[in-house]
C-alpha cells in the first residue's frame, strides 16, 4: 500500500473531521474503545482500527464496512477513551457521508411494519430511522 500526503489530507478526511468535530490524531491506538465495545465481536473493522484507518486516510474501506452500522452509539468507548476521542461521533460522520452524500439507505422496506407489530417502542423506530436513513 502506498501512502501519500494527498491521501492523508484528502477532502473526505477533512470532511469527517468537520462533521464529527474530532481530531483523529488525538487517538494513540490504545484499543480501550474496542476493549469496551459490547458489539466488537460482530464488527469487521474494530473501533480502534476505525481511528487508525482514518489516520491512514483509508476512508473508502470504512464506508464499506459493517462496523458503522453495528455501532450502537452506546458511548461506552467515548466514556473510557483516555484521549477523549468521541468515536460514536466519528461513526455518525461516516454514516452521514453515506446517507446524505451518497443517497444510501440502510433500512429495508418492510422492516418497519414488522417490528412495529411487535410493540417496539417509538423511540427505537425513530432512532433507527434517524440513524439509518437520510
Amino acid at each position: 500500500m502506498k501512502i501519500t500526503r494527498d491521501n492523508l489530507c484528502s477532502s473526505i478526511v477533512k470532511e469527517i473531521a468537520e462533521i464529527s468535530g474530532e481530531n483523529v490524531a488525538g487517538c494513540y491506538q490504545c484499543g480501550k474503545c474496542t476493549a469496551a465495545c459490547p458489539v466488537n465481536t460482530v464488527m469487521d473493522i474494530l473501533p480502534h482500527q476505525v481511528l487508525r484507518f482514518l489516520q491512514l486516510g483509508l476512508v473508502e474501506a470504512l464506508l464499506n464496512c459493517n462496523t458503522i452500522w453495528i455501532c450502537a452509539s452506546c458511548f461506552t468507548c467515548a466514556g473510557r477513551c483516555p484521549r477523549g476521542v468521541d468515536l460514536p461521533g466519528i461513526m455518525e460522520a461516516l454514516r452521514l457521508i453515506l446517507l446524505r452524500k451518497r443517497g444510501f439507505s440502510r433500512i429495508k422496506a418492510g422492516v418497519i411494519p414488522r417490528v412495529a407489530d411487535k410493540g417496539m417502542p417509538e423511540q427505537a423506530l425513530v432512532s433507527a430511522f434517524r440513524k439509518y436513513t437520510r
Binding site: C30, G31, T34, A35, N40, T41, L46, H48, Q49
Partner: peptide, 8 residues
Amino acid sequence: VDSLSGHA
C-alpha cells in the same frame, strides 16, 4: 483487545 492481531 490485542490491537496488533485485531482480536477482542
